[in-house]
């Protein structure tokens, strides 16, 4: 088995679920680094080059809101779920459960 092919497929699989994980973690306000830590603590490590562009895309889509604020004498950008994002999270979570159920039966 080609390890590169596995790696590509694994990344694709994780990429799809990463959006859901990020939206779920941002029910509480966090800044980038603590979000990354929270995701890693839950077994979803993600590098900064992937996370920050994703956060920007989600914000552009109106699912997140962000604010630069000073904390511990340093400027940090805090993100949280917008009302649209919260609604989207509910829908995606429901979809995820359906997929999870289906895959459990198939696998």
């Amino acid at each position: 088995m080609n390890p590169d092919v596995f790696e590509n497929l694994r990344m694709e699989l994780r990429r799809g679920s990463l959006v859901l994980a990020v939206l779920a973690e941002l029910r509480d306000e966090r800044y980038g680094y603590t979000l990354r830590k929270a995701l890693a603590d839950h077994g979803m490590p993600v590098d900064e080059g992937t996370l920050y562009p994703l956060l920007r895309r989600l914000e552009t889509q109106g699912l997140l809101v962000s604010q630069w604020r000073e904390e511990e004498k340093r400027n940090k950008r805090f993100y949280r779920l917008s009302p649209d994002g919260a609604a989207m999270l509910d829908q995606l979570a429901a979809e995820w459960r359906v997929i999870d159920q289906s895959l459990k039966q198939i696998l």
């Binding site: 800044y31 980038g32 680094y33 990354r36 900064e48 920050y52 630069w68 340093r74 400027n75 940090k76 950008r77």
Partner: peptide, 10 residues
């Protein structure tokens, strides 16, 4: 600025 903050934290 955001990337810099993340790297500083690391």
């Amino acid at each position: 600025a955001e990337l810099s903050e993340d790297l500083r934290c690391q």
